[in-house]
């Protein structure tokens, strides 16, 4: 099983480098922009800060300070962008390989199905963690290089690392959901559609929760609601939220294990179609 894990991790080598550098460049772009547009944003927020259309895309009220500006672009958009990779990768791991035909070779090896799911899931978890580590390292280098331009930010390198790495349990929810739906639904495209819809609803739902009672009631279901950048920088890691996210990940992984255990691989059918003899 460990060798399968290594194989799965090696397959993601390019993605780790590519997405890690990509996310690092995204944060570099934000930091380079800040000295230029920081003041301009303050004026904009005075006029548009409480506009619902503006709020759909994040808590822009907090952008009057550097920590608010930085945490919004990291806590709101980093997991959103990485969730796209999570959905692609999560649905590819089982459903994608099943449709491509490569899963048949793995299934013919002396491994239990739970071992296959677990090896793939752990490889995905480690890959995502490595992407965030590459992002964090690039951000720290950028931060040190731009220390003079940024001035006094009140944000330490430790804060930056924690803020970026905390995206991991949030993004993993989408990845584990994609893995589960890939093992449960007949086709990968159905699984990808399902998780993408959830991502869109969760992103806008979380940002607009303050404007609607219905959305406010649903907010605990949105993973983004457990990733408040400003709060994280001020109060540190919220352990209860972290445990909740880890619990959700574990529950989704268990569902993926159960679904794949029962799956008729290569058939592309709903789980309940197997036993039927017409």
């Amino acid at each position: 099983m460990f060798n399968l894990f290594l194989y799965e991790l090696r397959k993601r080598r390019n993605a780790i480098i590519g997405w890690g550098i990509g996310m690092g460049l995204y944060i570099l772009y934000i930091l380079v922009l800040y000295p230029t547009i920081g003041d301009a944003y303050s004026g904009l927020i005075e006029n548009l800060g409480d506009n619902p259309l503006f709020q759909m895309f994040g808590d822009f009220q907090s952008m009057s300070s550097f920590s608010g500006f930085f945490s919004l672009y990291v806590a709101d958009y980093l997991p959103l962008i990485l969730a796209i990779y999570a959905i692609i990768n999560g649905t590819a791991a089982l459903a994608g390989e099943e449709e491509a035909g490569t899963l048949e070779l793995i299934l013919s090896q002396p491994l239990a199905r739970w071992q296959i799911v677990l090896a793939k899931a752990v490889a995905m978890m480690v890959a995502m963690l490595l992407i965030l580590l590459v992002t964090a390292v690039m951000t720290i280098i950028t931060f040190i290089a731009m220390e003079e331009q940024l001035g006094s930010t009140g944000v330490t390198l430790g804060d930056i690392t924690v803020l970026i790495l905390y995206a991991w349990p949030v993004v993993m929810v989408f990845m584990m959901m994609a893995l589960f739906l890939g093992a449960f639904l007949p086709h990968r495209r159905l699984a990808a559609t399902g998780v993408t819809l959830f991502l869109i609803i969760a992103f806008f739902g979380d940002n607009l929760a303050g404007l609607s009672d219905t959305l406010a009631r649903l907010q605990p279901l949105f993973p983004f609601s457990y990733y408040d950048g400003s709060q994280l920088l001020e109060e540190g890691v919220p352990l209860d939220d972290l445990l909740l996210l880890l619990g959700a990940n574990l529950a989704l992984l268990l569902l993926a294990l159960i679904s794949f255990q029962r799956r008729n691989v290569t058939v592309g059918a709903w789980p309940w179609q197997r036993a039927r003899i017409p």
Binding site: A100, G101, T102, E104, L105, S108, Q109, P110, L111, A112
Partner: peptide
């Protein structure tokens, strides 16, 4: 698992 330890398989639709 026990069975597949002793089986070699070449699928017809090899990918």
């Amino acid at each position: 698992v026990q069975i597949r330890k002793e089986v070699g398989y070449l699928p017809g639709e090899l990918q």
